[in-house]
């Protein structure tokens, strides 16, 4: 019975990226990218520098300076490209930034609660009061093995590289998105920090939540095991496979793309 249920869920598409072309200024970056993601799936996006991996994340999140010139994106039955950045967030899109931004003077917890309440409000749900929120925070912070004082510090200000990345995943655990995009979350992390971040992500994995994991290295995928691996090169997905593809890439590199 459980198996049958799973099958039904898997038939629904969460995200459908159809022939996306996108550019920044005159620089064409995505050139006809297609990708379909179902609930609960983890897709790894790999590929050489400049292939358009981060741009893909930014297109989904709605960064204004990335212009989509062609194609469309369906997200849970909605035209994603039609939504404002903050609406996409409230619909369940979360981008873990490659370079998390510092906001001086704004308390980390205050920021996060404002974000959560803005999303709840958008979804027509009651906002969370401070004591309930505090409880939630205490529960989730353990997950990320983060120091308490980071909560009271200004957002990302004075955080180490690893702390910033952990803070991203911590935010994700509070906001509970439907689709999380991890943009090189592993970059700049030592092996211990990498394990903590991966642990945090794995605890958030479930049959409804999907992930796009953008990374250069197969190392992260030892800890966050993907269902699919895609190679993004020159603005398109040129190869797709299962997790063994990542291992193959680790050995062969991307030189074969030039042939």
């Amino acid at each position: 019975m459980a198996k049958k249920n799973e099958k039904i869920i898997k038939e629904i598409t969460m995200l459908n990226i159809k022939n996306i072309h996108a550019q920044v200024g005159d620089n064409k970056i995505l050139k006809g990218l297609n990708l379909e993601i179902k609930p609960g799936e983890v897709h790894a996006i790999m590929g050489p520098n400049g292939a358009g991996k981060s741009t893909l994340g930014n297109v989904l999140a709605g960064m204004e300076k990335v212009e989509v010139t062609h194609g469309g994106v369906d997200f849970l039955g909605k035209d994603l490209l039609d939504l404002e950045i903050e609406e996409r967030a409230a619909e369940g899109i979360f981008l873990a930034f490659q370079y998390p931004v510092e906001i001086p003077g704004v308390n980390n917890m205050y920021f996060l609660r404002a974000a959560l309440n803005a999303q709840l409000k958008y979804r027509g749900q009651p906002e969370m009061n401070s004591s309930v929120f505090l409880k939630l925070v205490r529960e989730k912070i353990k997950l990320m093995n983060m120091r308490d004082d980071l909560l009271r510090r200004p957002v990302n200000e004075g955080f180490s590289g690893g702390e910033k990345k952990r803070n991203e995943i911590f935010q994700m655990s509070i906001l509970e998105p439907k689709l999380a995009i991890l943009d090189e979350t592993d970059s700049g992390l030592d092996i211990d920090a990498l394990k903590i971040v991966a642990d945090g992500v794995n605890q958030l994995r479930n049959e409804d939540r999907s992930f796009i994991v953008i990374t250069h290295y197969q190392r992260l995928l030892d800890y966050i095991v993907p269902d699919f691996v895609h190679v993004l090169a020159d603005g398109k997905i040129v190869r797709s496979g299962d997790k063994s593809l990542a291992l193959e890439l680790e050995e062969t590199g991307y030189g074969w793309l030039d042939k």
């Binding site: 204004e64 903050e86 979360f94 981008l95 931004v101 906001i103 974000a115 999303q119």
Partner: peptide, 14 residues
């Protein structure tokens, strides 16, 4: 910065 605004908006804040 644009980056700060993008970051806040990506978290759902107007």
């Amino acid at each position: 910065s644009e980056d700060q605004l993008f970051y806040c908006k990506q978290r759902g804040i107007s």
